[in-house]
């Protein structure tokens, strides 16, 4: 009779795979089958699959399958806009302090799940160093915008001199629902850099993730979900930009559309579609989201409308 040490490796392998249980009693614990995550989309605080039932397969550079990713349709977008519209007014009515707290909370949650984001980014082709620095920068950027939540109003408001007995002042107000075609080359920081300035200003968003690097977008949705962010404030879809671009820009209930990239035909299309309801088309063509030039209170103001009030006063 053979004992363990005499078994060759192929035989060992065979024993191991037999119903996942070893028969020789030495190592009775079978090899556990990992539970793989289903990457779904994020609409109205829930994680549905795309209503279209379509998927695309995401592979790493060795050709191994990483995930089946939802290929969202225009109807998913429509549903997300309904949720975003419903959430917009209550979100804008939250105090600036509270919005800032929630953004900071998102940063905290992201910090706690750093490792998962780094591993997803590296699965999608980044070096470990690049992945770590992208995650770190994303966290810092959330803190940056959390800090601006009760300050940008002070910087951009004004008391205006007028030639009558009026107290005349201008304050920024959120534009409403913002659709975002997030950067294709950055799985996480691109999304964070476009979503954070929108929501800190009281807008709600529907964002399309990078189609080549969608994993972090879905995991980021889980972070948002556990950060006291009300349902519908951020909705995240995965899928193909070419299919959704015109819907993101022509929906009448969307007030601003952020486009990241430099495809001239896409930009033209967005600008034309935006004219339908005079939504703001915002084109961010510079494709470097890592450095500090990608964060600015101007990004918040891109999504604000200025309201001027005339208030009668005595002599």
């Amino acid at each position: 009779m053979k004992n363990d040490s005499e078994m060759d490796s192929t035989e060992k392998q065979k024993t191991k795979t037999l119903n996942g249980v070893q028969s020789n009693g030495q190592d009775s614990k079978g090899k556990r089958i990992d539970v793989l995550k289903t990457y779904k989309i994020y609409i109205d605080g829930k994680f549905p699959r795309t209503e279209s039932g379509r998927y695309y397969v995401l592979k790493n550079k060795d050709g191994d399958i990483l995930a089946n990713v939802c290929q969202s349709s225009r109807k998913d977008f429509r549903d997300a806009v309904v949720a975003a519209r419903k959430a917009q007014h209550p979100w804008a009515s939250r105090s600036a302090y509270n919005k800032g707290q929630i953004l900071y909370r998102i940063a905290e949650m992201l910090e706690g799940r750093k490792a998962q984001f780094i591993s997803e980014l590296s699965d999608q082709g980044l070096s470990m160093a690049a992945a770590s620095s992208e995650v770190a920068q994303s966290i810092d950027r959330l803190v940056y915008y959390a800090g601006w939540s009760d300050k940008y109003q002070q910087v951009y408001s004004s008391v205006n001199p007028v030639e009558s007995s009026h107290f005349n002042f201008s304050v920024p107000e959120p534009t409403g629902v913002v659709s975002i075609l997030s950067p294709e080359n950055y799985g996480l920081i691109g999304l964070v850099s476009t979503i954070a300035p929108a929501i800190v200003g009281g807008n709600t968003v529907v964002a399309l993730s990078s189609s080549a690097k969608p994993l972090c977008a879905v995991t980021f949705a889980e972070v948002l979900h556990s950060s006291d962010l009300p349902a519908g404030v951020v909705n995240i879809l995965t899928g193909h930009r070419s299919e959704l671009l015109s819907h993101f820009s022509n929906h009448m209930d969307v007030n601003a559309c952020i486009y990241t990239g430099d495809n001239a035909a896409d930009i033209k299309k967005i600008q034309e579609n935006a004219s339908l309801n005079v939504k703001r088309p915002l084109i961010y063509s510079k494709d470097n989201w890592m450095d500090d030039s990608s964060q600015s209170p101007h990004r918040i103001m891109d999504l604000q409308e200025i309201k001027t009030t005339w208030h009668p006063i005595g002599q």
Binding site: H251, M252, D253
Partner: peptide, 8 residues
């Protein structure tokens, strides 16, 4: 062919 808004 365009999704509408209640605002209009």
């Amino acid at each position: 062919g365009v999704y509408q808004s209640i605002d209009y």
